[in-house]
Design a protein around this nucleic acid. Sequence first.
DNA 1: TTGAAAGCGCTAACAA
DNA 2: TTGTTAGCGCTTTCAA
Lengths: 346, 346
Amino acid sequence: MKKKRPSLKDIAEVLQVSTTTVSFVLNGKGEEKKISKQLIARVENYLKEINYKPNLVARSLRTGSSRVLVFMVEDISNYFFSKIGRIIEDIAYNNDYRVLFCSTENNTKRTQDLIQLFQERQVDGFIIVPPTGIELEIQNLIENDTPVVLFDRKINTLDVDSVTLNNYEGATEITEHLIDQGYSKIAFITIDLDLIQMDDRRKGYLSAMEENDLKPNILEIPYNTANAEKCNAAITQFLFDNPHIDSIFFATNYLAQNGLRAISRHNDKLIKFLGIACFDDNIFFEMYSPSITTFAQPIEQMGAQLMEIMLGHLGDKENTKTKKAHILNGKLIKRESSLRRESIKP
Amino acid sequence: MKKKRPSLKDIAEVLQVSTTTVSFVLNGKGEEKKISKQLIARVENYLKEINYKPNLVARSLRTGSSRVLVFMVEDISNYFFSKIGRIIEDIAYNNDYRVLFCSTENNTKRTQDLIQLFQERQVDGFIIVPPTGIELEIQNLIENDTPVVLFDRKINTLDVDSVTLNNYEGATEITEHLIDQGYSKIAFITIDLDLIQMDDRRKGYLSAMEENDLKPNILEIPYNTANAEKCNAAITQFLFDNPHIDSIFFATNYLAQNGLRAISRHNDKLIKFLGIACFDDNIFFEMYSPSITTFAQPIEQMGAQLMEIMLGHLGDKENTKTKKAHILNGKLIKRESSLRRESIKP
DNA sequence: TTGAAAGCGCTAACAA
DNA sequence: TTGTTAGCGCTTTCAA
């Protein structure tokens, strides 16, 4: 049998007081509203006794706020995103907010649906890794005074807060590190999506190559999370077509993971000679043999920064603070895969 | 400026009809309620024109249902769980439900909070990987007629649906496979949590060892997601203390990943001789060199089964169908790590 | 110091 | 065929 959960009204009836009183006590406003100590105690005891749980849906409807934030990323099962998620969740929790996670899969339609869903459910704020083509929905959110913070990528046409990485400098640093270690035929493997951070990484690579009078060599792979095999095939083909390259710089950790597999399948000796580096650190890269050099994002700092901005907006809704683009600095982690090798590639 | 979103009432006013009419049309009940075609068209057009979004909080409050399900697992960034999550989400979507994901981190208190949070927000159903000590909350959910399906682990004291793996048989199969390949000093590395599926795996290992007159050798590691280092240290110590073992069976993929790292740090030649196998497949194991033998869970089938049960409950609330424990069969995937090696361990 | 009552936006029983 | 209205459970203004 379904026993209906007691409502404020039920409680008021049992206690022979008004719902107002119960509500005030429930929300800790007893003192403030000058309700007598005895009454407060009586109500509190009863609430505890029956283990009362307020109906948050009703509260949301009334107050227009749900104390829920949404964290929308490309793929929440990605190490980087799930780590940041955990950090955000902790900070939110300490400020009495809950966080809901979801994956956009970089799919515009899906993201639109998700934003609409949460908007309809009155969530209080969005932290989003925006896929392309989502400008309108985000604009819409902002116009509705719903706080939005962009993350990982920004949208230049929109006046909205964002937290991103120094992608350009990172790519330059990786490329120069490879050059320092004696590599010169450095390939850059990236995806074909028109994402601003990808473009920055590419530019960083190109500028470092040019600076050192080296000839760039770029492979652009069609983006398709669902199909790792195609990615593999493309990289394998590239290895065939470019036997002269001595190192590879992968633009994302996703590509690097697939790339490593492709390399080992193509020729399992190759990994000993090929210089490898990529963006975004990951336990996998530390464990792999050889361990892989990466440009690590400052995860803790990013999470803190994101929530600082979000809580700022939540605090005073009426502020017209100008929006800012925050750019954080990553860190090059040098590992075996990019160090000068004893032998030269055969 | 915040432009207030239009309500049903606003629309009714503009259109000079009643809110009932608008509500019926909105919910596709126009035909059924015999509203004239023209009126339906007029309302629909207007709804589309202003891009009306109903307030789902209000609807939830009124109907008592939110068309939202929750999927609570140990760690959503785990490959196995996130895969299942995606499958569940798709099925739910096709049935007009949304799915919210969250991680319990195997923490009882956290799980309690999460269940309470969602219960207060009127979610319609729970799919849970239960940590220990959560019996009361689940009992409570069931008494409130909220559908619950347990997953990955069951709770024997509770009459509730569950979908689990044939852990005992899987562990036996892995162990026997190692024995077949010529290994005999097989260690079993597990965690110290009192989880039923872990116990089954251990029993499966023990029975296969006994069956073959081999001496079991078990290492139990304190569970601590936050501290991979301790896990590493424990495994390293074990390798020192047990130089005679010729193979290791890891009870979870989490342990195997850490174990592989510990092994390669301890002695990077060792991996060539040591037989390795573990539970739960993962891309990582396919890519690792040597590729790792695993007992793979039937992911698609599990997701489908979970949702079939859930949708069944959601369909007719009043059913008192007896609850069932569904046990699915996993599959041994033989890879390089467990095959008979050419040379014997030095 | 406490209570009455309006109202958040929506659904659906009942009326017309 | 369409409209009136009560009410879901809560917060909060105003009154007592």
